[in-house]
C-alpha cells in the first residue's frame, strides 16, 4: 500500500502463559506451556472503511481487537493509528491525544455499562474525561442529541441500564462511543448477543452513523453473513493467523484459501433450502499444540509435503502454499 493507511497492524503477536502452577509443573514434570493467541498478523484499515475479522471461536479476533485499542500489550509487532505508534514509549503524548478518537463496543453491552449510573452520566463520561464540552447545560443537551442519534429519547438519559433491552443497551454503548467524537470504533461481536430483528436495527444504525460521520470500523464477528453485509474488506483468521484478506464481496464470490472455502461451504444459509452441502472435515486443533507448518494442514484437501513443515507467508492476500505455487486456480 503506497499511501499510509489509517490503521497499520504489522506482524502482531500475543503469547499467553497457560502453564499450570509452579508446584504442579514440578510434580508432574511438565514444562511451561504457551499459547500463541495471535501469531504474526498484519493488515491495514483505510479511513472510512469497515475492515472485518472473521473466524471461528478461539481464532484470535478479540485478542487482535484488544491490542489494536491498547487494552492489551502485544508480545511482538506494532499497531499504529494515524501515524502514531500504540506501543512506542516516545509517542506517549500523541497517544494520549489519539485516545479519544478510538472507542470500543463489546458483545455484552450490559457488562460494559456501569449499572449504578444513569444512562445520561454514562454517555457524558467521555465528554467530561476528554473535556470535549464545558458546562452542565451544554453537556446535557449534547447527551440528549446523542441519544436521539442512536434512536432513543433524550429522556432515556434519566433511566438506568437495566431498564433497557439488549438492543437498546447496545444503542447506549454506541452513543457513548460517539460522545468523544471518535473516528475509529472497534466493534467486537456487537450484535452476537442480540436477536436477529434487533441485530438488523443495530447494523443499520452502525451503517447510517458511518456514512454520517465518516467512521472507520474494525468489525469482529464469527457470523459470515453479518460480516458480508457490513465489511468493505475482510480478513479470515485461523488459529491466530490471518489466512486470507480480500475485498468484501470478492471473498464470498471467489474464496481462495482452502479454509475460507470450507467455512463458506459450512455456513447454513436461507438460500440453502433443500441443497446438499459439501463435507466439512475435522475440528479446530488444540491451540497449545498447533499442527506444524500450515496449521490448517490436517484438515486441508490440498495438503502436500511442504505444508507440514513450512508456515505459508501471506502473498497477495492469501497464506497458502497451494494457492501461491499456482497449484489451484484461484
Amino acid at each position: 500500500m503506497s499511501e499510509q493507511a489509517f490503521v497499520q497492524v504489522r506482524d502482531l503477536k500475543r503469547v499467553f502463559d497457560v502453564s499450570k502452577p509452579w508446584l504442579n509443573r514440578v510434580l508432574e514434570r511438565q514444562d511451561k506451556q504457551f499459547l500463541k493467541a495471535v501469531d504474526g498478523v498484519s493488515f491495514d484499515i483505510r479511513k472510512g472503511e469497515t475492515f472485518a475479522l472473521v473466524g471461528e471461536s478461539g481464532s484470535g479476533k478479540s485478542t487482535v481487537a484488544r491490542m489494536v485499542v491498547g487494552l492489551l500489550h502485544p508480545s511482538g509487532g506494532t499497531v499504529s493509528i494515524d501515524g502514531v505508534s500504540m506501543s512506542d514509549a516516545k509517542a506517549a503524548q500523541e497517544r494520549q491525544r489519539l485516545r479519544k478518537r478510538i472507542q470500543m463496543i463489546f458483545q455484552d453491552p450490559y457488562a460494559s455499562l456501569n449499572p449504578r449510573w444513569r444512562v445520561g452520566r454514562i454517555i457524558a463520561e467521555p465528554i467530561h474525561a476528554f473535556g470535549i464540552i464545558q458546562g452542565d447545560a451544554a453537556i446535557t443537551e449534547r447527551v440528549g442529541e446523542l441519544l436521539s442519534l442512536v434512536g432513543l429519547h433524550p429522556d432515556d438519559g434519566k433511566k438506568f441500564p437495566h431498564e433497557f433491552s439488549g438492543g437498546q443497551r447496545q444503542r447506549i454503548a454506541i452513543a457513548r462511543a460517539l460522545a468523544s467524537n471518535a473516528e475509529f470504533i472497534v466493534c467486537d461481536e456487537p450484535t452476537s448477543a442480540l436477536d436477529v430483528s434487533v441485530q438488523a436495527q443495530i447494523l443499520n444504525l452502525m451503517r447510517d452513523l458511518q456514512q454520517k460521520f465518516g467512521l472507520t470500523y474494525l468489525f469482529i464477528s464469527h457470523n459470515l453473513a453479518v460480516v458480508r453485509h457490513m465489511a468493505t474488506r475482510i480478513g479470515v483468521m485461523y488459529l491466530g493467523r490471518l489466512v486470507e484478506v480480500s475485498d468484501g464481496k470478492q471473498l464470498f464470490a471467489a474464496p481462495r484459501h482452502p479454509y475460507t472455502r470450507m467455512l463458506l461451504d459450512a455456513v447454513p444459509d436461507l438460500a440453502m433450502v433443500g441443497k446438499p452441502r459439501e463435507g466439512v472435515k475435522g475440528e479446530i486443533p488444540n491451540p497449545i499444540n498447533p499442527p506444524s507448518g500450515c496449521t490448517f494442514h490436517p484438515r486441508c484437501p490440498l495438503v502436500f509435503d511442504r505444508c507440514r513443515v513450512e508456515n505459508p507467508p501471506v502473498i497477495d492476500g492469501v497464506a497458502c502454499h497451494a494457492v501461491n505455487a499456482g497449484r489451484v486456480a484461484a
Binding site: V196, Q201, R228, D269
Partner: peptide
Amino acid sequence: QGLMGAIPSITGEAERLVQIPGSM
C-alpha cells in the same frame, strides 16, 4: 416476512436490512 428481510445472507444483495421496530 420482517424476519426474513432482517437476516443477512451470504448470497443476498440487500444494501439495507429490513427493520422491524421494537422487540419481543
